[in-house]
């Protein structure tokens, strides 16, 4: 069972995850009919910026994060922003959406000047996330775990970050055992997505470069 502290940690992270979202009007813009490569580019850039702000607001609510060294907080956020963005956008693509919406989103991304080489791994990742049928708690906890990665560049006090990540990992492990009793591999499969995210992170840097030049 969860200890009282673990329950508090879970609810704290879940509330923050539900509270801090991309503004509704911006999300709606994505579904408009207007399509031009420039508009898609601008909209996706604006979405990415808004997502970083939402990510920071979420992260500030992770118990213990604001007690970390200030520069380490920045190193963690900078190192995880792209992965957290892919994880969150995966949720958009896997949640039961009115049929048309996901195609509009996918079409918009495919027609925004991003080369196919980067789009395919992105949608493969969304598919593999979809197969896990993750609950909201799992998305929130996995996002926190991604951010609290002690091995990000420029992090100095790795032990302090590891202690925080360990606490969240333990909550996720218990949550999976409680809510997926017939799937002993579920927790391991969730963590497997984190390694997939790291390759997307690498792709993303190259993609931005090629996107800017084109």
């Amino acid at each position: 069972e969860f200890s009282q502290d673990q329950l508090t940690l879970l609810n704290y992270i879940l509330d923050a995850y539900n509270k801090h979202r991309i503004p509704q009007d911006m999300a709606k813009q994505l579904l408009q009919e207007k399509f031009s490569e420039e508009e898609n580019f601008l909209l996706l850039t604006e979405m990415a910026t808004s997502h970083v702000q939402v990510l920071v607001e979420f992260t500030k609510n992770i118990p213990g994060f604001q007690a970390l060294d200030h520069e380490d907080q920045i190193a963690l956020l900078k190192g995880s922003a792209v992965e957290a963005m892919f994880l969150r956008s995966a949720q958009v693509f896997t949640r039961k959406r009115p049929h048309g919406h996901t195609d509009v989103l996918e079409d918009r991304i495919r027609k925004s000047g991003i080369s196919e080489e980067y789009i395919t791994p992105m949608f493969n990742f969304y598919k593999s996330i979809g197969e896990l049928q993750m609950m909201q708690e799992e998305h929130a906890l996995l996002t926190a775990i991604t951010i609290l990665s002690p091995d990000r560049a420029y992090v100095r006090d790795q032990a302090a970050v590891e202690r925080l990540q360990e606490a969240v990992l333990e909550v996720l492990r218990k949550f999976c055992r409680l809510r997926h009793p017939r799937e002993p591999q579920h927790f391991a499969r969730l963590l497997g997505r984190l390694t997939e995210l790291r390759t997307l992170n690498h792709h993303h840097a190259e993609m931005l470069l090629s996107w800017r030049t084109s």
Binding site: T45, Q53, V56, K60, I74
Partner: peptide, 21 residues
């Protein structure tokens, strides 16, 4: 607009205050 700021600038600004204000 915020989208011209670099990633680190956006993070620093958001960490300091509530960015939405």
């Amino acid at each position: 607009p915020a989208s011209n700021l670099g990633l680190e600038d956006i993070i620093r600004k958001a960490l300091m205050g509530n960015f939405e204000d």
